[in-house]
Lab assay of single mutants.
Amino acid sequence: TVKFKYKGEEKQVDISKIKKVWRVGKMISFTYDEGGGKTGRGAVSEKDAPKELLQ
Rank of each mutant, 00 (worst) to 15 (best):
T1S: 13
T1N: 07
T1A: 09
V2R: 01
V2C: 03
K3N: 09
K3D: 05
K3C: 09
K3R: 13
F4A: 03
F4E: 01
F4I: 05
F4D: 01
F4K: 01
F4R: 01
F4W: 11
K5D: 07
Y6K: 06
Y6E: 08
Y6R: 06
Y6W: 14
K7F: 10
K7G: 09
G8E: 04
G8P: 00
G8D: 06
G8Y: 03
E9P: 02
E9H: 10
E9T: 13
E10H: 09
E10S: 09
E10C: 11
E10I: 12
E10R: 06
E10N: 10
K11C: 06
K11F: 10
K11A: 04
Q12C: 14
Q12G: 04
Q12N: 07
V13Y: 02
V13T: 06
V13R: 01
V13G: 00
V13L: 06
D14F: 08
D14M: 12
D14S: 11
D14E: 14
I15R: 03
I15Y: 05
S16F: 07
S16P: 04
S16A: 13
K17E: 07
K17L: 12
K17G: 04
I18P: 00
I18R: 00
I18W: 00
I18N: 00
K19I: 14
K19M: 12
K19S: 07
K19G: 05
K20F: 11
V21T: 06
V21G: 02
V21L: 06
V21Y: 06
V21W: 11
W22E: 04
W22K: 05
W22Y: 09
W22M: 06
W22F: 07
W22G: 03
R23H: 09
R23A: 05
R23S: 04
R23C: 05
V24D: 13
V24W: 14
V24S: 13
V24T: 14
G25L: 03
G25K: 05
G25C: 06
G25W: 03
K26D: 15
K26F: 11
K26I: 13
M27I: 12
M27L: 14
M27H: 06
M27T: 10
M27V: 11
I28F: 04
I28R: 00
S29C: 15
S29A: 15
F30S: 00
F30G: 00
F30K: 00
F30R: 00
F30I: 02
F30E: 00
F30Y: 01
T31M: 11
T31D: 06
T31R: 03
Y32D: 00
Y32M: 02
Y32T: 01
Y32E: 00
D33L: 05
D33K: 03
D33V: 06
E34F: 06
E34I: 11
E34L: 14
E34W: 04
E34Y: 08
G35A: 05
G36F: 11
G36E: 13
G36C: 12
G36M: 11
G36A: 10
G37T: 04
G37L: 04
G37P: 03
G37M: 06
G37W: 03
G37F: 04
G37I: 03
G37A: 04
K38S: 09
K38E: 07
K38A: 08
K38H: 08
T39Q: 09
T39S: 07
T39H: 07
T39I: 15
T39A: 07
T39E: 11
G40N: 06
G40P: 02
G40V: 06
G40S: 08
G40F: 06
G40L: 08
R41E: 08
R41A: 06
R41L: 14
G42D: 01
G42T: 02
G42M: 03
G42Q: 02
A43Y: 15
A43P: 00
A43N: 12
A43R: 13
A43I: 15
A43D: 07
A43G: 06
V44T: 04
V44R: 02
S45F: 14
S45T: 13
S45C: 15
E46R: 10
E46L: 15
K47S: 09
K47T: 11
K47F: 11
K47H: 09
D48F: 13
A49Y: 03
A49V: 05
A49W: 10
A49S: 05
P50M: 03
P50Y: 02
P50F: 02
K51Q: 12
K51R: 12
K51Y: 14
K51M: 14
K51L: 15
E52W: 14
E52P: 07
E52Y: 10
E52N: 07
E52A: 12
E52H: 09
E52L: 10
L53G: 01
L53Y: 01
L53K: 01
L53P: 00
L54G: 03
L54W: 09
L54K: 08
L54M: 07
Q55E: 14
